[in-house]
Design a protein around this nucleic acid. Structure first.
Lengths: 253, 253
DNA sequence: CGCCCATTTGAGTTTAATCAAAAAACGTGG
DNA sequence: CCACGTTTTTTGATTAAACTCAAATGGGCG
């Protein structure tokens, strides 16, 4: 939350470069979004609420956020994360109304992209469209993996898998290094992701800590035993498709 | 599984027309896919296996299928359904390898679409691309709803919600009418969708039956008390976005 | 008809939820 | 920098939902 302030788009570019090698012009196109109005928002605020009209795509510049859905009786479930550099699904072209809400975890900075801005970005720059399509597919893969977790993994497995996923995603945008990454979720939020009660999250974390596998304090996750964590969570990073480094495509305009 | 055999593409068209009104040329473009090789497959067979190279998009012409993922120890979870008219996510353009498998529930007929065929379909026909984009978003919304179900709904709520979802999706392709629809899933498959054991599925079905809410026999689901089913499942069809009938767009080429 | 698969049922167990309360950490204003 | 209130985390005891194991029943198909 401090480093990338200076290079506001580095997260997005770093991520997209896992999917396609970007040319100078591509990068300039992304930087061009800088002209869009940038906004700040505090932690624990709704960015978008279910039922809102969809007029802009949100590009998260820094901070953590999440999508969530609620049942009538107030039970709520986090259905996805939103990390720096993530472009909230650009359903702006098709859907009129949000069917879920987005809230911040930390204070955040974001840009609102008009339909026009997104259109320019993807129509003019084929490679960018390719990279963004890739991202959509990866997001779908992440959702499938969450369904698998919720359906079949135990509490311990589920949380281990989640730590692995988020570590990899953060590493891909340069926010994780040497098995340490920011991790600003409260245990209540961890409970809302994992479908567990917050008390059970606490107990489960204790187990992972007791076995010397992770250390999670003051908003930082430190993975002490990555192999064990992967094994418990049955984590295989392949579905994130972050290992391509866009090597197949060259970056000449 | 009998009616639509005669009009092989009606399901896909019916579905897409919920998203955009299609012109004659659009429909011809879809019918043009008929030239692609059509294949038959028996019930309970893998159509695509995790790790397979992605060379074709699959268009299911009739029959039911599902996507699933497995853990190393064999636990498996259904992560999505695939109904007549569904075009399996055309990741053909970006991903090289399947990260999940697809299997049939019933005997099925399908077409394999080459990259080229899909490209023609969506590049030439803007409205079709629009409709297909819409479908991708609806699929993402369905996945979010599943995550909510698995995370927060009880066994009874979860199954009720699933019945509502599938009824609506089947109705949208003309396979459901008067609260009756085909429902060829075994209880074991229902268990693999809902994250429950098959025994618990059986008990939960008994409850729904006992309250006179549904009747599920010999592959047919009959919803006796739709309002009660919706209320139990906290189902709101809005997220399926099937209520537009593409009215906003006219269908002139 | 008989075999195999799917479904049902029961009993006992396990996992995770709930309820309740204490302890720790955090943020803010004095 | 400390005291205060708030939020978050931890812990224990109890309960409930769903699982497992086991066995019986039922249906469909060759």
């Amino acid at each position: 939350m401090d480093d990338q302030e200076r290079q506001p788009f580095s997260c997005m570019m770093r991520k997209l470069e896992h999917f396609a090698r970007l040319s100078k012009t591509d990068k300039q196109a992304i930087e061009g979004i800088l002209s869009a109005p940038q906004k700040m928002i505090k932690a624990n605020r709704d960015l978008v609420r279910e039922g809102d009209a969809v007029e802009y795509a949100i590009l998260l510049l820094d901070g953590f956020a999440y999508r969530y859905k609620e049942l009538e009786d107030g039970r709520r479930q986090i259905v996805g994360f939103f990390l720096p550099g993530d472009l909230c699904d650009f359903n702006i072209f098709v859907l009129e109304e949000m069917d879920h809400s987005i809230a911040t975890i930390t204070a955040a900075r974001y840009a609102l992209l008009s339909r026009c801005a997104v259109r320019t970005l993807i129509l003019d720059r084929r490679r960018l469209m390719h990279a963004l399509n890739w991202e959509i597919l990866v997001n779908a893969a992440i959702q499938r993996e969450w369904i698998l977790s919720l359906g079949k993994r135990s509490a311990l497995e589920r949380m281990s898998h989640l730590f692995c996923e988020l570590y990899h995603r953060l590493e891909a945008i340069g926010l994780a290094d040497r098995m340490v990454c920011p991790f600003p979720l409260t245990q209540l939020q961890l409970a809302e992701v994992s479908g567990l009660s917050s008390m059970h999250v606490s107990r489960t974390l204790r187990q992972l800590r007791a076995h010397g596998i992770i250390d999670l304090t003051r908003g930082r996750l430190s993975i002490k035993d990555y192999d064990a964590l992967c094994e418990i969570g049955m984590f295989n990073p392949h579905y994130l498709h972050l290992d391509q480094v866009g090597a197949a495509l060259d970056a000449v305009d």
